[in-house]
Design a protein around this nucleic acid. Structure first.
Lengths: 219, 219
DNA sequence: CAAAGGGCTATTGTCGACAATAGCCCTCAT
DNA sequence: ATGAGGGCTATTGTCGACAATAGCCCTTTG
């Protein structure tokens, strides 16, 4: 009965695996923005058929990570300042809703999860490497989104987060003061815990706009 | 030089055509929610290969209009009350941002476009059929989204609108009083024209929550 | 030398066939 | 009668081959 089912990534159909692998590599920067990808080369490297890889690429296209140029090839997205502005304004809108919903429910379990991820963030801000801090930052935001119990919201958020990660990795733009990070996030947690939807929403939106500003101004 | 290029739908690659056709049929209700679709049957009906149809179906899957059941087939989404709640809350968040941006720019051309679509809406509310009113309603909302000049916002909005249309057509849920429709939309236009982002955003969000409530309560 | 035209190549677009599998139905034992 | 077990069928999953095309290079011509 102690059957673990961790290796789910191994038992997936081939196209889903290809999708998962390619997505990881793009998101973590192993495949750089602007890279040219061809179906044949990828299929040879991954030991899969072209059709299978092609399916995965089309999915990534819908996720906004790659672009198809007809009869010529695929390229990994390159994010311009305008794209960053789009991503952060959109994330602001999405997280505003998430925070509103989380604060409305103010469900004990969800609040605990958010509080936990905030604690991790605080700890990382004191002793952690920049990348660990950034990771904890993402985790905190995601815990709020999860607390909203809103499937479409989660999906939309993940698409945005992916693209932001592409940019972060390609530019090493981790320019925030650890102390300010804590100061920016703590009030959000408090507003959710206090069951104050409009404040939680407002703070979340503003936080994203501020972060977006920082990034675009440093480009 | 008087070369018209209307028939763009004719010159598209086959997979894009299949995508376009299937999407239209699902969104306008010709293919009912819950319908079972099989790649072979569709490919025969459309005179295309299975692979081509399959590509289109995967795209529709990413758009959230169909769901794939492994080794069994595809089904058109059926929207539950929870789905409607998700759609309208999400649309509220998206349109809030759109209205904020539109009001911030308060760009002459965009405002004119929004005002024009509002006039159409007002006219349809007086003399039009319910379906024309609903269409003008959608057009008004979209004109605001377009005014934001935000590509990802537009795409996200279109996905949401599509799914709402599926539900509208499947349930004939057009339950609004024409007079109230005008009363709900007019202040939004005014706030955008006045360059009042926070009011425009707030009104847009609230409008969507109200509409969502109406629909879910009537299920 | 510049510009237009044609062909070559790399790559996606499309196709039909075979493999794998989920779910049904039928059998058979109890 | 009923439950388990096995095989059958419909459908997706995967593959390799051929068709169409965009973009480059090379030639040719003025």
């Amino acid at each position: 009965m102690t059957q673990v089912k961790l290796p789910k990534i191994q038992k997936m159909p081939a196209d889903a695996r290809a999708l998962s692998v390619l997505r990881s590599q793009i998101v973590d920067g192993s495949i750089a923005p602007g890279s040219r990808l061809t179906e044949i080369q990828l299929s040879e490297e991954m030991g899969l058929s072209r059709a299978t890889v092609r399916t995965a690429l089309h999915q990534l296209g819908k996720e906004g990570l790659v672009k198809l140029v007809p009869y010529t090839g695929w390229t990994v997205i390159e994010l311009t300042p305008t794209d960053i502005w789009e991503l952060y304004t959109l994330r602001g809108a999405v997280e505003r809703l998430a925070a509103q919903l989380a604060a409305t429910k103010s469900d004990e379990k969800s609040v605990a999860a958010i509080a936990a991820s905030f604690e991790t963030l605080r700890r990382e801000c004191e002793i952690g490497k920049p990348t660990s801090i950034a990771e904890a930052d993402f985790a905190f935001h995601k815990s709020i989104v999860n607390a909203a119990s809103h499937e479409r919201l989660v999906m939309q958020y993940e698409l945005i987060e992916q693209q932001i990660r592409v940019y972060i990795h390609s530019s090493d733009a981790l320019i925030s003061d650890p102390i300010e990070i804590v100061a920016q996030h703590e009030p959000i947690l408090r507003a959710i815990r206090d069951g104050n939807p409009s404040l939680a929403g407002e703070l979340s939106e503003r936080h994203n706009l501020v972060e977006g500003e920082k990034l675009t101004s440093s480009m």
